[in-house]
Nucleic acid binder design. Structure first.
Lengths: 110, 110
DNA sequence: TCCATATTTCTATTATCATCGAAATGACAG
DNA sequence: CTGTCATTTCGATGATAATAGAAATATGGA
């Protein structure tokens, strides 16, 4: 992941509604949720939701797939891991350090 | 880390200059770098740099400390790990899943 | 085909952000 | 103190983003 796509992805997440959507989809797992369900759960009007889903999709953070009458959105976990890696890349010049150890502890769950 | 501070932090990183600054500081480790050095390395005018450093600081992503005539900025690794945790929290409903395994592999380095 | 409903596009309004020169402030050395 | 140099504040300008109602566009069941 290079700078530009990282900025785009972070910008997509830097908004309360979108961050809520994304976290909901991360929790939902690979199956995802359909647009209507997302809107209902978060209390977001359809037009607003569509706008934000488009932003997340164009940032590469979520994927859409049609399933019967519904469009299911799911988190792109590879992209998410890419951002995490980009932020923590070469931490402390690559030397062993407490920050990496703490991070390892957290992200090892599940 | 709750929603609001996460949005603020992500917003602080969702900008090319600031993301570059932050990554530079992550690489620099706990010592950090003084403002002038950051500006010189990234080719950012002093006024612009100061603006962005203030944003990063108020988002809790960097810390400043005076050292002789210079002000040293360093990444707040705890905040960084907090964001990572917030994004990946409860991934796939907490069930074991490939995304978490892939992430573990990446963040285990150093 | 035709309708019900899921989702998107259009549009306008309002608000926030990035940039950087110039001037002001702050801190230290001598 | 005083001059020097590091950093911040001010201010003006241009650009991008969030919101949601109304209308348009799919999609698939009957």
């Amino acid at each position: 992941m290079e700078m530009k796509s990282a900025v785009t992805a972070l910008g997509a997440l830097a908004q309360e509604t979108r961050l809520s959507i994304f976290r909901l989809l991360v929790e939902a797992g690979p199956e995802g949720l359909c647009a209507g369900d997302i809107g209902a759960r978060l209390g977001v009007p359809a037009a607003t939701l569509s706008f934000h889903l488009a932003q997340l999709a164009s940032a590469g953070l979520v994927q859409a797939r049609q399933q019967s009458r519904f469009i299911f959105y799911s988190a792109d976990f590879e992209a998410m891991n890419g951002i995490v890696g980009f932020l923590t890349e070469n931490c402390c010049g690559g030397r062993p350090c407490p920050p990496a150890r703490a991070r390892r502890k957290k992200t090892t769950a599940s």
